[in-house]
Design a protein around this nucleic acid. Structure first.
Lengths: 347, 347
DNA sequence: CTGTTAGCGCATTCAA
DNA sequence: TTGAATGCGCTAACAG
């Protein structure tokens, strides 16, 4: 026989269980559960009594106990490489916001610094109903595959795989557009900065870069394979300055890189865009503060995050889910680093 | 009598319980639990059998079940206002990183958009062992107080309260230093932009602003009470431009504001720092890209987050904890927006 | 409409 | 050293 826990009237607000409120309301725990779940009909009288008791005791069901009983967690897992720059933050905000609307908690995990990612993710999986992961070299496919099958998984900005849900923002088309724009300014020695192997995003952007050249019957240069951080940008600028690399335009895989290159180049006496045009990707805050304003591609990152949460929830609940990979459109933000005349209102 | 769950050999990797591995290893669930917890001594033989079985089945204990049994969650809760700008992201990275080192998951909640924050936080509390919250107007004291007593709580960048653990970065002293620096350039009509009522951070910075004036036997102006976003900065610049407000120096409560003001002012024909000096707070990326470089205060935000996680864990585990509020030092970053000559190397 | 009861999966005491 | 049994707090049948 199950011993009913002692009703500890001493503990302030914690330690109050369903038994406490049941006792306080003079009903069974089943009734308490009922009114709180709103499942079965309950007499208005007991309903009120329970509500009052629960309120006075500030009762909130223990998540773990509830999870164990209902066999799900009401939580979404999110795995991101890290959080520097506005991209991941925006993504996270969109994700958290939508998850909250859906009544789901979000437990976050950053890949950075984890020696055994697969183990960590597997552990995370034991406390959530599904996982959203960002596709990148920091979160290899193996990790995704390892989880797939045991819990719903949605891949953000990753490779479209027939077996896995994917939400991503448009890359190739925008990359082709921005590259064509640069080409339209008459630039002919244009370089792509970024490593296509670092992740699907960069790879697809380079693909667009190539496509734009093909459309113009030009041959695209090999990518300058570097990481997307400030330090890499400075190094690249130095190569340009020293003549080791030659170009009249630079399509960077993200703004951080573009900004760093631009700054160093100007310090080195080059003038942008006259000597060399530079464009980026992301439309970070700095992009509109620098001189000249950075031409770039804006992604609705927040929406991306929200979509991921949505999709994940659909998979978890078994709701009917849309077809193939979901891709969110991006938009070109033309400022003057590409060679266009400065706008009066740069915003 | 308790019915042993059927061993579902069908389900790929999920659905494997302690019963599965027990059966596979030919031992009782107690033994399985023992070797996995490393609690009691177990014969090397069964130990190996269990480990093998667990490995083959990729068994990971269900968090909820474990939590219920051990009566804690192995998870830290973190409540932040939102995530825009580098500040919160850095904080979050520091927090997550340290929490992970301590073997704790982190469940994140953003205050932004939550209509009933107290309810949301209370709910969050049911799935974590303790909460770290950022002190700000978005997360009022009432919220903190509501949780205090039921679970360990640490306040980040909040008011030092004798009853609550607090970790914060130094504000008043740095504010006094940067203000004195500006005063040292001979500026006499210096304004403080930011609302001291918006949170302890801004309040303390304004206090430092006042202190610097007092030290120089000057009287400090009332704060210009505005929010810290770009749009507010533009509005402030317009007031300066129109002559509605008059100043030869501006101490802004954060960089976003300072940057926005500076940009607008320059568009309006003013020259910084000649006509007006401007300094900020945070040292965001843009601060070193603009012309002139923004003089500001750098905070070790990441460390702040890590400290919060540490402190929280100490409280949860009942470890001996250091004395009063923990404050982390900041540093002045002098560039040229304050009136100092531009450095050759602005980094 | 309401109370009783059987698990959810795991850690842990108690015997053996 | 091991297995059987109990209970963590809660939901969901199942009887009344």
């Amino acid at each position: 026989m199950k011993g009913r826990p002692v009703a500890t009237g001493s503990t302030p607000s914690s330690g109050t269980t369903i038994y406490s409120v049941a006792e306080r309301a003079g009903v069974s725990i089943a009734s308490v559960s009922r009114v709180l779940q709103g499942s079965t009909a309950v007499s208005e009288k007991t309903r009120l009594r329970v509500l009052a008791a629960a309120d006075e005791l500030k009762y909130v069901p223990l998540a773990a106990a509830r999870s164990l009983a209902v066999r799900h967690h009401e939580a979404h897992g999110l795995v991101l490489p890290e959080l520097s720059g506005p991209y991941y933050s925006e993504l996270l905000m969109g994700f958290e916001s939508r998850a909250a609307e859906l009544g789901q908690s979000v437990v976050l995990m950053l890949a950075e610094g984890k020696s055994d990612l697969v183990r960590a993710v597997r552990n995370l999986a034991t406390r959530v109903d599904g996982l959203a992961m960002l596709g990148s070299s920091a979160i290899p496919d193996a990790t995704v595959t390892a989880m797939h099958g045991s819990k719903p998984v949605v891949l953000i900005a990753g490779d479209a795989r027939p077996d896995i849900d994917t939400v991503t923002s448009e890359n190739t088309g925008s990359a082709e557009a921005i590259t064509s724009h640069v080409l339209g300014h008459g630039r002919r020695r244009v370089l792509f900065a970024g490593d296509p192997a670092s992740g699907p995003d960069v790879r697809d952007r380079y693909a667009g870069f190539v496509a734009a050249h093909e459309a113009a019957h030009l041959s695209a240069a090999e990518p300058v394979r570097i990481a997307l951080r400030e330090i890499d940008g400075r190094a690249l600028a130095d190569r340009l300055l020293s003549g080791d690399l030659r170009a009249d335009a630079l399509v960077c895989a993200n703004d951080e890189l573009a900004l760093a290159v631009m700054k160093r180049l100007r310090e080195g006496g080059q003038v942008v865009p006259d000597d060399i045009a530079i464009v980026g990707w992301d439309d970070v805050m700095t992009a509109r503060y620098v001189e000249p304003g950075l031409t770039t591609v804006r992604q609705p990152v927040r929406e991306l995050g929200a979509s991921a949460a949505d999709r994940l929830h659909q998979r978890i609940t078994g709701a009917p889910v849309g077809d193939g990979p979901q891709v969110i459109p991006t938009s070109l933000v033309i400022r003057s680093s590409c060679g266009c005349p400065p706008e009066g209102v740069s915003r």
